[in-house]
Nucleic acid binder design. Structure first.
Lengths: 407, 407
DNA sequence: CTGGGTATGTACGGGCTTCTGACATACCGA
DNA sequence: TCGGTATGTCAGAAGCCCGTACATACCCAG
C-alpha cells in the first residue's frame, strides 16, 4: 500500500508540471493542518482561542476540529478558568494521549533507529540496530522492517503512517534512495514502497536534514516560527530550509547542500572536487587538523567541547582557534541569511557540544558580518544535545503529508 | 486608497503571525490565479484544454473562468479547429485586447520609468523621467506620479492597479522604502501609500530583483517554470527567487542579497565591509580592474561584449579573463543551486552583452563545478537585451497580488 | 441532403466547506 | 435567585467544485 498520497496524474498534454486546483475538501485538510500547527505552536487552546487566532467564528473552528476529535487525534482537556471572571470555562484542545501514533525511522550508514511517536511528540517506544555498511540492500530493508515491527508491536492503536529520514540523496515523491555515498548498496533502492508493503502502512521518505527541520518545527526551537534553517554539522553539512510555513524541496528532492557551497574559492580541495566548500572549514575534521597544526593537546580527538574548555582555561592558541572556528561557522550562516533571510538558524550535530560559548560566538560573528541595515538580526540556536530531533521530524513527516499546510 | 489587499489583523493574542485559514472564496481566487497562470504559460487554451490540464471537468473550468470573462480580463477567441477531425471547435481563451490594463513603475536612482501594460504583457504606453539623485523625496514622488498619470491618461479603461519596482530595500507589506543606498533621501518613504492616494489606485511596492523575477515568470524565460532564480548583475548583484510557484520573500522583504554572500573569504574587501563578497569578483568593476591589470585595450570601458570580441579574436589574455569571469559568475550560481536547486538561472544586466559565448561558458563552468550526481543539470539563460522585464514584472506584481497562486 | 461520430460548452443537482445568527450551557457575583 | 459573561453548538445560507446529462457545432460518409 505505497501511498505518496499525491500520485502525479499519469498523462499530461505538456511536459510541465500539472496545474493543480484548490478544492473544498483540500481546503478542509489544509485548515485541519493549520489548526494542528497552531496547537503545536501555542500549546492547548480552546475553540474560542483558535477562533480569535484565526479571525473566524467559533462555529467554524468547531467544524474543523470535529473530525480530528472523532479520529481520536485530539481530545478535550479539563475545563479551565480563564483570566476574566464569569463565563463558561473553556475546554482546551490537545493531542489525545491515546491518539494513533506515528512511526519514525532514522537511517544512517550502518545504523538504524525506529521509534513510535505520539502525536504530541513523545517517544513511546524505540528500537535501534546496526548493520554492515557493505550489507546488501535486502539486509538493510529487513533491518528497518524488523525494528519498525518491534516498535509497532507495542501499540494497540494502528499507526497513522511511517516517516523515514535518510542520510543521502532521496526522491521523496517515489520514496527512492537515489544515492548514498557511504552505503552505495542502497543507491536506487525504492525503500519507501518496500517498507510500505511489508508493514502495511503509508510511508514517507525524505532527506535527513529536512526531517530534522520538521522536527525542529514540531518540537524544537523552530516551534511557531514561519521561517528558519536547520543545519546539521557533523561528518558532513546539510540544511533543511523551512521557508514561509513550508519545507523547501527542490526538484527531485534536491537542495540544502549548503556544505558544498563555496566560501573560500582559493581554499583547500573538498572531497566533492570543488575548492573551498564550507565543509572544508566548518566540520570537525578541519578543527582537528588545525588543532594538530597548533599542537593543542588531544588534537586528534578534538571536539568543540574540549576546545571550549581549553579556551576558557586561557590557552591562547585554543582561544584563537575557537574564535576562528566560530567565524567559519558564521560564514555559512551569513550567506544563507543574505540569500533567504530565514532569521533563525538551528544548529545540530558536533557543534552543540561547544555550548553557549560557541553559540554566542557564532551569533556575534554572524551579526558583525552582516550589514547593519538588516532588519532583523539573525538568531543562532543549538538543537538539544540528546538529539532525537530527526526521529521526531521523521514522525512529523507523516503529519505534514497528511495535513499539508499550503494548498 | 492604500490597499496591500491583506492588511494584517490588528490584534493578536500572541506576537506571532496569525493563523490564516482557507476559505471557499479564497480557493476560488487561487483557482482563478492558477488558470491565468496556465494561460500565460501555455498560450491561449480552450476550457476543455484547461480541464484536461488540471484534471477537472470542463464545467469546473467554465465556472472558474466565467467571472474573469465578465470582468473583461479574458475573452474568447475565434473558434479553432483541433488536430482531430470532427467535434465542436474549441473557443480559445486569452487575455482580452481591451482588458483593464496594469500600471508599472521602475524606480532606480535618478531615473523613473512608468508604463501601462496589458494583461498579456504588451506595453501600451511608456514614459520616463530623470531626477537628481539628491532630490528631496517629494520631488521623486511628484516625478513618479507625473509619469504614472501620463501613461494612465492614454487608456480609457481604468487600470487594475500599480506595481512599483524599487532598487533598494523595501517593506512590501507597508509599501515603504526602508533604505536606498544611492538615494538616501528616499529612506523611510512610504511611497506606496503616497502614490496610491494621488492616483487613486491600489499600489504594490516591491524589490527590483523580485519584480524582475515575476517579469521573467510572466513573460520571460521563466514562463511555465515552477522554480528559478532571476539574477541581476549590474553595478550591484541581487536575486529574485521563485520557488515552488511563489516568489520568496523573507521577513520585512529581506532576502535575495546574493551579491553579498562570501565566496572568497580571503579576497578583496567589499564596500559592504565584508571580504570576498560575490560582488567583488562578478561585477563589471572587477572586470575592468582585471582588464587594466592585463593591459587590455579599452580596459576602463570594458564590457562583456568587448571582452567576448577580444577573446574570439584570439587575444590570449582576454580569453583567460573571459574564462575567469565566467568562472566567477558560475560560483554564485553553483552556490545557489546547491542550496535551493532552482534548476534555472536567468541572468540580467551587464552580462547579457556577453552573448552566447558568455552564457555557454557560465553554464559549462557551473555544471563542471557541481557534483555529477545532481539530478537535473542547472540551466543558464540570459534575459532579453532590451530589458523591459522589470517593468513587466512590476505590472505582474498587481496580478500576483490580485490572484495569489498559493493559499 | 441526411445521419452518425465526435468534441465542446453549459445546466442542474449533490456534496463539501465556511459564514452568520441564534440558542443552550456553565460559571461568577450580587 | 437572577443578571452578566463567555463557551460551544445548531440550523440555514452562500460559495465553490464535481459528476452527469444535454444542447451545440463541426466533419465525414453514404
Amino acid at each position: 500500500m505505497w501511498s505518496p498520497s499525491e500520485t502525479p496524474r499519469p498523462e499530461q498534454p505538456t511536459g510541465r508540471q500539472p496545474t493543480v486546483l484548490m478544492t473544498a475538501v483540500k481546503a478542509g485538510r489544509v485548515n485541519q493542518g493549520r489548526v494542528l500547527q497552531a496547537l503545536h505552536d501555542l500549546g492547548p487552546l480552546s475553540r474560542a482561542d483558535l477562533a480569535r487566532l484565526a479571525g473566524v467564528s467559533r462555529a467554524t473552528i468547531g467544524s474543523i476540529v470535529q473530525p480530528l476529535l472523532e479520529r481520536g487525534l485530539l481530545a478535550e482537556g479539563e475545563p479551565q478558568r480563564g483570566a476574566t471572571p464569569g463565563g463558561k470555562p473553556a475546554r482546551p484542545l490537545w493531542f489525545a494521549p491515546d491518539s494513533p501514533p506515528l512511526a519514525a525511522v532514522h537511517l544512517v550508514p550502518g545504523w538504524v533507529e525506529a521509534a513510535l511517536v505520539s502525536a504530541d511528540g513523545r517517544i513511546l517506544a524505540a528500537a535501534s540496530g546496526r548493520f554492515r555498511v557493505t550489507a546488501p540492500a535486502a539486509t538493510v530493508v529487513d533491518c528497518v522492517v524488523d525494528r519498525l515491527n518491534a516498535v509497532l508491536a507495542g501499540s494497540a492503536a494502528r499507526a497513522l503512517g511511517v516517516g523515514i529520514a535518510v542520510g543521502g540523496i532521496v526522491e521523496s515523491t517515489s520514496g527512492t534512495i537515489v544515492a548514498c555515498n557511504l552505503m552505495p548498496e542502497l543507491s536506487g533502492l525504492p525503500l519507501g514502497p518496500l517498507v510500505s508493503e511489508r508493514v502495511d502502512l503509508p510511508v514517507h521518505l525524505d532527506l535527513h536534514p529536512r526531517a530534522q527541520a520538521i522536527g525542529d518545527r514540531w518540537s524544537g526551537p523552530g516551534r511557531g516560527e514561519q521561517s528558519f534553517a536547520s543545519i546539521y554539522i557533523g561528518e558532513a553539512i546539510g540544511a533543511g530550509l523551512f521557508l514561509n510555513g513550508a519545507i523547501h524541496c527542490g526538484p527531485a528532492g534536491a537542495g540544502g547542500e549548503i556544505g558544498h557551497t563555496v566560501v573560500d574559492v582559493r581554499g583547500r580541495t573538498c572531497r566533492c572536487g570543488q575548492r573551498g566548500c564550507w565543509e572544508t572549514i566548518a566540520t570537525r575534521d578541519w578543527l582537528r587538523e588545525e588543532a594538530a597544526r597548533l599542537r593543542l593537546p588531544a588534537a586528534q580527538a578534538m571536539t568543540t567541547a574540549l576546545l571550549a574548555g581549553l579556551s576558557a582555561a586561557g590557552n591562547a592558541d585554543a582561544k584563537e582557534l575557537f574564535e576562528r572556528y566560530a567565524h567559519n561557522l558564521a560564514l555559512g550562516v551569513v550567506n544563507l541569511q543574505q540569500i533567504l533571510a530565514p532569521g533563525l538558524f538551528i544548529l545540530h550535530g558536533d557543534v552543540i557540544a561547544g555550548g553557549e560559548a560557541l553559540r554566542g560566538r557564532v551569533e556575534r560573528q554572524a551579526r558583525s558580518q552582516l550589514p547593519p541595515r538588516s532588519a532583523a538580526e539573525p538568531q543562532i540556536t543549538f538543537g538539544s544535545a540528546h538529539d532525537r530531533t530527526t526521529l521526531l521530524g521523521a514522525a512529523g513527516l507523516v503529519l505534514s503529508q497528511s495535513f499539508p499546510l499550503v494548498g
